[in-house]
Design a binder for these strands. Structure first.
Length: 497
RNA sequence: GGGCCUGUAGUUCAAUUGGUUAGAACGCACCGCUCAUAACGGUGUUGUUGUCGGUUCGAGUCCGGCCAGGCCUACCA
């Protein structure tokens, strides 16, 4: 039985239009999910939509339809995106599903039982215009920082006893030094918690579009308690007959998030779970944001990047490669036309594409299109590059497990460069006239390099790698990571198409 | 205001616990090859490592001041 690997994207708020940020988060998960599957893991890759809250209720009212019908429509945008971008999520959760209500209510009951949720009232300065609360310190002359008038509002609310978890969280962070990545983000989380924690409002009585609080119909659960629980819902928590799935999947191996929602995943979420005496996720990775041609992306500037447009312009695999190769994962990055074109031309077309082209072309012209068979004897000139090739997987595993996708790609391309160098050094076009057998051996070595490289880049470039493997004549069921390294070699002998 | 981080070649980034002439990629120049998608390979190129001072036999690396930039500082997801 293979090992489970459970990873998640955040659930995306349906009121937003899908943009490059959503695509980026899901892409990172998709690549990791594909990698783990190829490496023999039993993968569960989850994405979905967050469909509750006042804004959604209001948007639905404005359209004159009920919230459920509204969310059915808008959540479709996100399901379409996963299909268009070739994502391989195993499930798509919506917070409006029955299974999610069941999970939320079970968790709530547990928190009540353990005494970590209590009823009080939520008080504060509220600006109707901004739909936001402001702290006492932010108010000047009865105005919010935005200039909006504020009023004192009090409403009953359930609270989660977050303040009681400061020490436990800090101890948890100490015991799990890899819980949050990158390191710098983890430091921010720790310093936030060290600064003291206030209890958290976890219900609202002022609107109704949410998961009902068990035993108190006047309240619905508020935001993060509802949203974060999705990760357990999809793992079977609170489902009839979901116990074995839950036992297999939970805790999650990785929550991938944007840096803007790190705190909720790295502070609130483990606190909720500790309070419910449930296992905490193993890791949270907070990635960075993209700028567009050096400019911050914002709706008001109108420079939002549409991932579908990018994929149509440059190609889907090209976009996937660029997003993961261009920037150290975790950092902010800049999306520019010139950078995109440079990566495509340099790495993809010139280095890898041309390598494949020159090798296949020589096999067609000089071997009657028959893939050379595995040489009985290799030379000293072949050993170093094959050793580098065979050693790639180990580094790939390390980099994927730490989400260093750019490093993983960089190492593969070092072998690609070495292969181009090897072609020049061996000069098969000269061997053709002097030693045809050696020429075939050289071409075999190159084909073997292409084979392993293509297998390794499958997670990032599923289509291009498939084409490469098809061209080489590698069988569809011989493309897993168990085919890598020196144990399994390209046998050859078949006619290329 | 408080906390954290960054500042290295034209550009993007590297530099094990402080240790020889600070590296790579891209760009650029020249050379080579001719199998290939005018692609590939080789050689070379540029640095007062933000700034001032300190510790040390020795500092890109440690300490302090200054300059510049970024991030976090709780209930919109």
């Amino acid at each position: 039985m293979s090992t489970s690997y459970y990873l998640t994207t955040p659930i995306y708020y349906v009121n937003d239009k899908p943009h490059i940020g959503h695509a980026y988060t899901t892409l990172a998960c998709d690549v990791l999910a594909r990698f783990k599957r190829l490496d023999g893991y039993d993968v569960m890759f989850l994405t979905g939509t967050d469909e509750h809250g006042q804004k959604v209720q209001k948007s639905a009212e404005e359209k004159g339809i009920d919230p459920k019908a509204f969310t059915d429509q808008v959540s479709q945008n996100f399901r379409d995106l996963t299909a268009t971008l070739n994502f391989t999520n195993d499930d798509f959760i919506r917070t409006t599903e029955d299974r999610h209500y069941a999970a939320c209510q079970k968790l709530w009951a547990k928190l009540i039982e353990n005494g970590d949720i209590y009823l009080d009232s939520y008080k504060g300065w509220y600006a109707v215009r901004d739909e936001a609360f402001y702290a006492e310190s932010e108010i000047t002359d009865g105005k919010a920082p935005t200039g909006a008038p504020v009023e004192w509002v009090e409403e009953p609310s359930y609270f989660f006893r977050l303040s009681a978890f400061q020490d436990r969280l800090l101890a948890f962070y100490d015991a799990n030094p890899d819980f949050v990545a990158p390191k710098s983000r983890f430091n921010e989380v720790k310093s936030f918690v060290k600064g003291g924690l206030m209890d958290l409002s976890v219900s609202r009585a002022s609107f109704s579009w949410g998961v009902p609080v068990p035993g108190d119909d006047a309240h619905v659960m508020y935001v993060w308690l509802d949203a974060l629980t999705n990760y357990m819902t999809a793992a079977g928590y609170g489902q009839d007959g979901g116990e074995s799935e839950y036992a297999k999947r939970w805790p999650a191996d990785l929550h991938m998030v944007g840096k803007d929602i790190l705190r909720f995943h790295a502070v609130y979420w483990p606190a909720f779970l500790m309070a419910a005496e449930l296992p905490t996720p193993k890791r949270v990775f907070a990635h960075g944001w993209w700028t567009n041609e050096g400019q911050k992306i914002s709706k008001s500037l109108g420079n939002v990047i549409d991932p579908v447009e990018i994929a149509n312009t440059y190609g889907l695999d090209q976009m996937r490669y660029f997003l993961l190769r261009e920037v150290p994962f975790g950092n902010d990055g800049d999306f520019s036309h010139t950078a995109m074109v440079h990566r495509m031309n340099g790495d993809l077309a010139n280095d890898l594409g041309n390598l494949s082209q020159r090798v296949l072309s020589m096999i067609f012209k000089n071997c009657d299109g028959v893939m050379p068979t595995r040489p009985a004897q290799l030379t000293e000139a072949d050993a170093p590059i094959l050793a580098a090739l065979d050693g790639l997987l180990e580094g790939q595993r390390k980099h994927y497990d730490s989400q260093m996708f750019h490093e993983a790609l960089k190492e593969i391309w070092e072998v690609v460069s070495a292969a181009n160098r090897y072609v020049d050094d061996m000069a098969p076009w000269a061997l053709r006239k002097t030693d045809i057998d050696r020429m075939k051996d050289v071409l075999w070595v190159l084909a073997e390099i292409l084979r392993q490289v293509a297998i390794l880049i499958q997670p990032v470039m599923p289509e291009a790698s498939q084409n490469m493997l098809d061209q080489l004549g590698v069988a569809a069921d011989e493309r897993g990571f168990d085919q890598l390294g020196g144990a399994t070699r390209l046998s050859g002998g078949w006619t290329l198409e």
